[in-house]
């Protein structure tokens, strides 16, 4: 693959949802998950990209582009510079799944400031869901390696 995956294209996230829903054997062992999260990708020049993703039971039920200001309405949101998100997705595409410190858990764990991908949220029960359903989210994100959406 010569071109980077376009991570500000909503169709990528919808294709990842379809991928996940089409292959329940991959993640069913992880069990049901009920959570709404948002991924917020900050651009230096503004016009941030944000996508809200809803998991229900054993499916990813909804993927919608939202204004970044709506991200706090989700159970939790993951907020970071576009370049950091790009590096994460590029790693997923290159390795078939997130490797090393590019897993969403490691990125959030190692985050120290707004220059990193941080775990954020206003509701403590909502923020908990990041850890409780972490592998379901990781499986979803790893699906980027399997969908043919490139810029």
């Amino acid at each position: 693959m010569t071109s980077k995956i376009d991570i500000t294209d909503l169709s990528l996230y919808r294709a990842m949802a379809e991928e996940l829903n089409a292959h329940p054997e991959t993640f069913t062992v992880l069990g049901e998950a009920d959570m709404v999260l948002a991924l917020v990708m900050r651009r230096d020049e503004g016009s941030d990209f944000a996508v809200r993703i809803r998991f229900e039971g054993l499916r990813c039920e909804a993927v919608d582009e939202v204004d970044a200001s709506e991200a706090p309405l989700a159970d939790y949101f993951l907020d970071g510079p576009l370049a950091k998100w790009q590096a994460m997705f590029d790693d997923i595409v290159a390795n078939g799944a997130a490797s090393g410190r590019q897993t969403i858990n490691s990125l959030a764990l190692l985050a120290t400031n707004a220059g990193d991908v941080r775990l954020r949220g206003d509701d403590p029960m909502g923020v908990d869901k990041f850890s409780r359903f972490n592998q379901t989210l990781q499986e979803y994100l790893d699906g980027a390696a399997r969908v043919a959406v490139t810029a």
Binding site: L30, T103, N105, S106, L109, S131, N134, Q135
Partner: peptide, 27 residues
């Protein structure tokens, strides 16, 4: 949560990730 950083192979990564989800419920 740190398990992904200390795991020398995907086997340990999987082990820590699965345990993490359980532990998060308890917390």
């Amino acid at each position: 949560r740190m398990g992904e950083l200390i795991a020398p192979s995907p086997v340990e990564k999987r082990m820590f990730r699965m345990a993490m989800q359980d532990e998060a419920r308890h917390v």
